[in-house]
Design a protein around this nucleic acid. Structure first.
Lengths: 205, 205
DNA sequence: TAGATTGTTAATCGATTAACAATC
DNA sequence: TAGATTGTTAATCGATTAACAATC
C-alpha cells in the first residue's frame, strides 16, 4: 500500500530490478520469478517479493511475474512512465559524454538544454542540443520547466551553479563535481565521483 | 580492532569522511570533533565515533580528532597511502573525461594506461597517456602490474573487456557501461550509470 | 578543577530472512 | 489434482542511536 513511507533503500533497488527486467525482455522472456530475478541482481527472492509487494500485488502464485507488466508498474512507481527533460551544466568532456550518452532516452530522460560559460563553446552543438550561455540558465530552465540537472563544471563553480539551479526550480541534481553542495531539503542531490568509487574498492585490494 | 570483519557499509563511509577532512584542511582547521564531522557529512556523531573506533583509537577525549592524523589513518585503512595505477578502456567522451580528470592524483590514483579499438584513436594522447591498441591490453596491463581498470566502452563490448581485464590480473573494475558484468568473486566491480542515478531521484519528484 | 569529547556498552530501531498459508 | 510461487507474518540479524564512564 502506497500510503506508508517506503524506505529509501527499497527505492534504490527498483532501478536494478527494472534494468534486469529490461534485459530479460530483450532476451525474449515473458515471465520471471522472484527467485530468477533475485539471481540476476544478487538479492534474495524473499527480499524481491517483499520490496515489490510494498507497491501492490503484481505477481501470480505458481506463475511469478509478467515481465512487461511488472516493468510498467515499476516505471509508474519510479515516475519514469514519461520522459523527463534534463539540463547539462558544463560542456567539457563530462558534459559532452552525458549529452551523447545513448542510455537516457529509452530510460525516461532527454537532454533538452546545455550551458557553458566559455564563449567558444556557446552556440556549438553537443548531442542534439545547442550550448547556451550560462548567464541565461535560470531563465531558460525556468521557461522550459526542467526539473532535473546534471552539474559537470569545475568544483569551484559547483555551489554557485547549484544555487542558480535551485532558483530556476530544479528539484533533482546529479553532481559530477567533486564537492558537496548545499541545497534546500526539497532538492535531491546524487554524487558521481570516480575517485570515491575507486577508494571504496582499494580497501579490499 | 582490525581482526574482525568490518561491514561494507562502514567502508563505504570512509571516503566521505576523508573528503570532508581534506576540505577542513584546505580551510585551515587542525582538529575536529565527531559532532562537527557528522554535520559535514550528514551522519550522527555517535555513528562517526563508532565507525572510526573500529580501526583504532584515533581521538582524544575533550579535544576530538587531529585532522591530519585521522586523514593519514583513513588513507592507510583504505589502502590509498600510495598511488594506484589505473587503466582506462575506451577513449571516447567518457574515457577522455576520466583521463583528464583532475581529482585522481591527489586522491591516490594515476591514469597509467589507456586503450581503444579505433585505429584513429590509437597513438593519440589523452591526458598524459598515449592510447594503445586494445589487442595489446592483456599484455600491457599485466606487464605494468595494474590492478584497477575503468571500463568506458559500449555496453555490447563490456563483458568481453571485463573478461580480458580479469585475465590481465585486474582486481577492481569501475564500469561506466550500462550493463551488469560477470567476473570472479575476488574481483570487485562498481557501476557508474547516470540514468540509474537519475531514476533514483525521479521517485521523489 | 570544570568542560568537552572520546570510545564503548546497552537499548532501539529497521532491514533481511525464513517459513508457510493462500492460490494460481 | 500436484507443483510452483506469491504475499505476508514472525523470527532473526545487523545497524543506528542513546547514554555514560573514562579521561584529556
Amino acid at each position: 500500500m502506497t500510503n506508508k513511507k517506503i524506505p529509501d533503500i527499497i527505492i534504490g533497488r527498483l532501478p536494478l530490478y527494472l534494468r534486469a527486467l529490461e534485459r530479460m525482455t530483450t532476451e525474449g522472456a515473458i515471465v520471471t520469478s522472484s527467485k530468477e530475478l533475485g539471481e540476476w541482481v544478487g538479492i534474495s527472492a524473499a527480499q524481491i517479493r517483499k520490496d515489490i509487494s510494498q507497491f501492490g500485488e503484481f505477481g501470480k502464485q505458481g506463475t511469478g511475474y509478467n515481465i512487461d507488466f511488472l516493468s510498467k508498474k515499476l516505471r509508474e512507481i519510479m515516475n519514469i512512465d514519461r520522459v523527463w527533460d534534463v539540463a547539462i551544466i558544463g560542456a567539457g568532456d563530462i558534459g559532452h559524454g552525458l549529452a551523447r550518452y545513448q542510455g537516457f532516452l529509452d530510460r525516461g530522460f532527454r537532454v533538452a538544454l546545455a550551458f557553458d560559460i566559455d564563449p567558444e563553446k556557446i552556440g556549438t552543438k553537443i548531442g542534439d542540443v545547442v550550448v547556451e550561455d550560462i548567464s541565461k540558465m535560470v531563465v531558460s530552465i525556468n521557461d522550459a520547466d526542467v526539473k532535473i540537472a546534471m552539474i559537470a563544471v569545475p568544483a569551484d563553480n559547483a555551489q554557485d551553479v547549484a544555487e542558480k539551479l535551485v532558483k530556476a526550480g530544479v528539484k533533482a541534481i546529479l553532481n559530477y563535481a567533486t564537492i558537496i553542495i548545499n541545497v534546500p531539503e526539497d532538492v535531491r542531490v546524487q554524487y558521481i565521483d570516480p575517485a570515491t568509487h575507486l577508494q571504496w574498492m582499494t580497501y579490499y585490494l
